[in-house]
Amino acid sequence: MSAVLRARGLGKRYKKRWALQNCDLEVPAGRVVGLVGPNGAGKSTLLKLACGMLTPTAGTIEVCGGRPAAGVEQLAKVGFVAQDTPVYAALSVADHLDFGKRLSPGWDDAEARDRIRRLGLDPKQRAGKLSGGQRAQLALTLGIAKRPELLILDEPVAALDPLARREFMQDLMEAVAEHELSIVLSSHLVSDVERTCDYVIVVVDSQVQVAGDIDDLVAGHYRLTGPRRDMDALPAGQHVITASHTDRQTTLVVRTDTAVHDPSWTVDPLGLEDIVLAYMARPADAVRDTRPALEVVR
């Protein structure tokens, strides 16, 4: 299995504050990866490290087999659509395509022009006059038409209304199907990720909490409800993500590879949103104690 993104002990510090630390990741190629976490968790930092906009303070990161932004060849392999999808306000839509054509070695001009036509953008319009959704589409077009192996999108739909959001995601998925590219996109909304991604990375408090195939995650997490009890009583192979107790009842979110047989528990399956929320709700210091348990068995 080839990894499109591989990080070892990756960390980035701004002055005194670590924006991301102890990040170990191995993301398989050909996936649509959703990076979720609250605002300020380190999602943007991880993505910028992956496209080479930032250089790591600690550890290493390898993308498509090379150091990010190491040279023109590496730049051609990785596309990046930055947060708020910036475009040159003074340049027209056609100018942007011209710009991509002149700058990107693998530029697919026919595809770019075709996309612009399908999206109904006027090539003569100045990019500064486009709506938020159109601007995002233009930035996406630049990212796709350069024909990267990996396309990274940082909160691409955060500023869009629900309809534009859905259109953008649909369009992105069509491009994935057509060009077999890998995608890593970040969002603070789990619903965006659930609809489009098949792999998820949860980042909270500058740490990667969990990473894995969404189906595996959903199949491996349960909510257990039962009479109040001590958590030490759990069998091996069941890892507690969160626990809450009332006087008489204990509710656990656990990750496990095997079925839960204890008849005193009521076992409920969990959706992706609940799983992500459970990881987000986990106390920050729990991460380091349970590090080995974080690797999701596939």
Partner: peptide, 8 residues
């Protein structure tokens, strides 16, 4: 970001 990720 646009220029730096477009092959320059």
């Amino acid at each position: 970001c646009l220029a730096w990720n477009q092959g320059v």
